[in-house]
């Protein structure tokens, strides 16, 4: 009985109910009846093919970042830098895409953008990885700082014509890049009305591959060993520095690829705030999932649904979208607070 009460799913459900109640109160505070609010929320999550598609796209971005986070986490490293890696991956992805000729075919353009994004994010994360491996600097602090520097790189890229800004023709020219050539854009999957793109497939594939590598390959076991004890792993002949830098690079790479995907999704431009804070949300997804890739996909999906539901809540029911942010953070805080309780149950 006590074991059941302490099961993470049960605790998560209780947390969800509490957070949902808070959400209804917020809706009521804004003068919207619970029924109307719930309707608008559900409509925005899954009501139309469009809603489903954009929820899935958001979920996929979060899942990519969280899957990468899980790789580094297995090696004992907490990658707080998803946001910066996302930004830099977006910049490198956009740079590569814009360098392609207009008529580039999709089978060349899309991989080029994705690989460039992955490489950019991986390189960005490797700065923290190398500092950790060579100088022992805490990756929590360096990746945190690199977020802001990455955001600066992005801002610089979209503000300077010498870099990626579209040609300035008038005072109204927005600080953003020119649109990517059609061949560099992520293809849509599914029906015409749905904006869901290839990123959904990529995210599921990334999660599957990460799960397979971590659980069933020597590399996965080596990462796990390094995560538990770098000293013992070194004694046993593992390349600890290589594994640490590699783990963090994969985390950054997947976040960077997610950034490139965002740029290669409508409206196909690199703009200053294209990241929407997904890097931080992805980190939270990764930490809550505690190493389980199933949990990564499930939590990312939940967050994707909530985010898009919240946008509709504002549009259709006049409840500030911020209230969904409140609900989402309450949910996370409640789960984080209850971990001491669920951990005891697991013992």
């Amino acid at each position: 009985m006590i074991a059941a009460v302490r099961h993470p799913v049960f605790v998560g459900a209780v947390a969800a109910i509490v957070a949902a109640c808070a959400g209804l109160l917020l809706a009521a505070g804004a003068g919207t009846s619970p029924a109307v609010a719930v309707d608008a929320l559900v409509e925005g999550m899954t009501g139309t093919p469009y809603a489903i598609g954009s929820s899935l796209n958001t979920a996929a971005v979060l899942a990519l970042i969280a899957a990468g986070f899980t790789v580094a986490y297995r090696a004992g490293l907490v990658n707080v830098g998803g946001e910066g890696q996302l930004c830099v991956g977006g910049v490198t992805g956009a740079a590569a895409g814009l360098a392609l000729p207009q008529g580039v075919p999709g089978w060349i353009g899309v991989p080029v953008v994705l690989i460039a994004g992955f490489a950019g994010g991986a390189a960005w994360a490797s700065i923290a990885g190398l500092l950790k491996a060579k100088r022992g600097t805490s990756e929590v602090i360096t990746t945190l700082l690199l977020n802001f520097v990455g955001a600066g790189v992005l801002a610089l890229a979209v503000h300077e014509e010498a870099l990626l800004r579209q040609p300035v023709t008038s005072a109204e020219t927005l600080p953003q890049s020119a649109p990517l050539p059609p061949g560099a854009r992520l293809p849509l999957i599914g029906s015409i009305e749905s904006p869901a793109t290839l990123i959904v497939v990529l995210a599921v594939a990334a999660a599957l591959i990460v799960a397979l590598v971590l659980r069933h390959t020597p590399t996965g076991l080596r990462l796990t060993a390094v995560g538990h004890s770098p000293a013992a792993s070194a004694r046993l002949g593992l390349g600890v520095a290589r594994l640490e830098v590699g783990g963090l690079a994969v985390a950054g790479g997947l976040a960077g690829a997610a950034g490139a995907c965002l740029v290669a999704t409508a409206p196909y431009v690199l703009a200053e705030h294209f990241s929407s804070g997904y890097g931080f949300t992805g980190l939270v997804v990764g930490l809550l999932a505690r190493g389980s890739l199933t949990a990564v996909l499930a939590i990312a999906l939940l967050f994707g649904l909530l985010t898009n539901g919240g946008i509709n809540l504002q549009l259709a029911a006049g409840v500030p979208a911020a209230s969904v942010q409140v609900v989402q953070s309450l949910l996370v805080l409640l789960i984080a607070a209850s971990m001491i309780w669920t951990r005891k149950g697991a013992r």
């Binding site: 907490v78 707080v80 929590v140 804070g277 931080f280 980190l283 939270v284 930490l287 809550l288 942010q325 409140v326 989402q328 953070s329 309450l330 996370v332 805080l333 984080a336 607070a337 971990m339 001491i340």
Partner: peptide, 15 residues
């Protein structure tokens, strides 16, 4: 509650 300081910090900011 000994919850993770990074998660709670970032999430408290979002809240």
């Amino acid at each position: 509650l000994r919850a993770d300081q990074i998660v709670t910090g970032i999430t408290a900011n979002a809240l």
